[in-house]
Amino acid sequence: MDRRKSLKSILLGGVASGLAVHGCNPKPTEVADTSLIEEKAHAYGRTPKEKKLDQELLSQTFFNEHEMDTIAVLCDLILPPGDGLNAATDANVPDFIEFMSKDIPELQVPLRGGLMWLDHKCNTDFNSAFKSATEEQQKSILDTIAYPDTSVPEEERPLEVQFFSLMRNLTLTGFYTTKIGIEELGYKGNMPNVWNGVPDDVLAQHGVSYDKEWLAKCVDQSTRGTVAEWDDAGNLLT
């Protein structure tokens, strides 16, 4: 057992056995502590190989500080704060975009190049980097790239339009897949419940209804805990 591995065991006690697999890669112990926290944050049924891949991606950095700042400004123009709403940065969307640029390397050039295009455009028009321009200046640029012509296939649209569409997609997906985004959306699932059909007011709102005949075939949820028994013809008796 190497030093890092034994440190992990001490830190995590019995739980460490599954995680300690990564210990074979000797790295400074200072790094080990943060990686452990991240490892715990991303416990979602990974195989040892998948766990290792996540750790590798999380330990790498793709965007530089200026790029990350610009991404944050862009994300919050797409989903701004105010009126009790959470901004994209409240949901750590820039970190998600940083991760995705490593997970899907094909995103790297369009994103990095798009950010560069944005600064070039802003410098040309306003003699300022995009992140430091006024909101009015920033929006005047976005207005030229945020509305794609949907009659043109996506890959044939101008690069800056494609770039902004990509940023918008990643921002929305990054936002609505977080706790605060899911709350805002109003998704109510992913918890144990007993499905018993569409609420009446919803049926009325959308102008549909259940057939009596169909409903008669469906599960009576009051007997879901009773063990099923049938007669010889396949009629459920319980």
Binding site: W195, G197, K217, C218
Partner: peptide, 13 residues
């Protein structure tokens, strides 16, 4: 020999 099915969802209606 079937267990009873769940009720349809809105899009299924």
């Amino acid at each position: 020999f079937f267990l009873p099915p769940p009720k349809p969802r809105l899009h299924e209606l």
